[in-house]
Design a binder for these strands. Sequence first.
DNA 1: TTATGTGCAAACCGTTTGCGAATCA
DNA 2: TGATTCGCAAACGGTTTGCACATAA
Lengths: 134, 134
Amino acid sequence: MPLNLEKICVEAGVKLTTPRKVILKILEESQDHPSVEELYKRASDVDSSISMATVYRTVSLLHEMDILIRHDFNESFSRYELNDEHHDHLIDIDSGEIVEFHNEKLEALKEKIAHDMGYDLMDHRLELYAKKRK
Amino acid sequence: MPLNLEKICVEAGVKLTTPRKVILKILEESQDHPSVEELYKRASDVDSSISMATVYRTVSLLHEMDILIRHDFNESFSRYELNDEHHDHLIDIDSGEIVEFHNEKLEALKEKIAHDMGYDLMDHRLELYAKKRK
DNA sequence: TTATGTGCAAACCGTTTGCGAATCA
DNA sequence: TGATTCGCAAACGGTTTGCACATAA
């Protein structure tokens, strides 16, 4: 079930402008973790009049709406991905490749740790930096 | 056993200048996760001639020497802490307080996940963002 | 003595913002 | 039509860097 971002925006009362439609479509089709720069490139290929500022504003808006997750994989810029079903990330140190994974034991353990410390877990971030085994 | 940063630096062939001695001492005494700005403040209190640039350069040097860990807790700046014994972090969303914790099960599980994916774990980052339970 | 480190100020670069024009509802 | 969004370019803020001087070894 591919999620319909335009529908979500309309229901949230967000105005559907031309640049936004282009960016939403790109996000729906993206299987990776693009930076704003990369999103801007992809958007420009569709409509060259779209500005960097609009990409930044749209991405911020979607992040606030909880539609996008912002990542900082120890780089000088942010990457974004759709807030689809939850997963964590393994970053291949050598190739830069980002591999998604999900582990139920890990999820349960994170909850338990926070709980045992007297907290309710609201969000978390787990990244494994690794090298492919030879 | 408090670690002797000056000794480590000498052994690594790093020249011990006045600014570096001041910054090393501050780091040894810090129990928190100071930003460069904060380190600069603390260093200025000892020797007001130390510049921001030197703090940045020293911190980068120590980070490359694997003496300091750089953190990015979803802020617009980096925080640093001594690379002492390993622990993860829980960030209190409401107060901003950073609580350290260590969980062996979690450590083992992270290793196992990377291994099962065909990787050797080199480094990782786990942050729990949570609210104090009422 | 000399390679290295320092303070200063300017540059850098990803991101944000003020503004007047364009556009969705 | 009127509130919102847009593109542009300038500003922002944390960090880096070129340079001439200072300093540890």
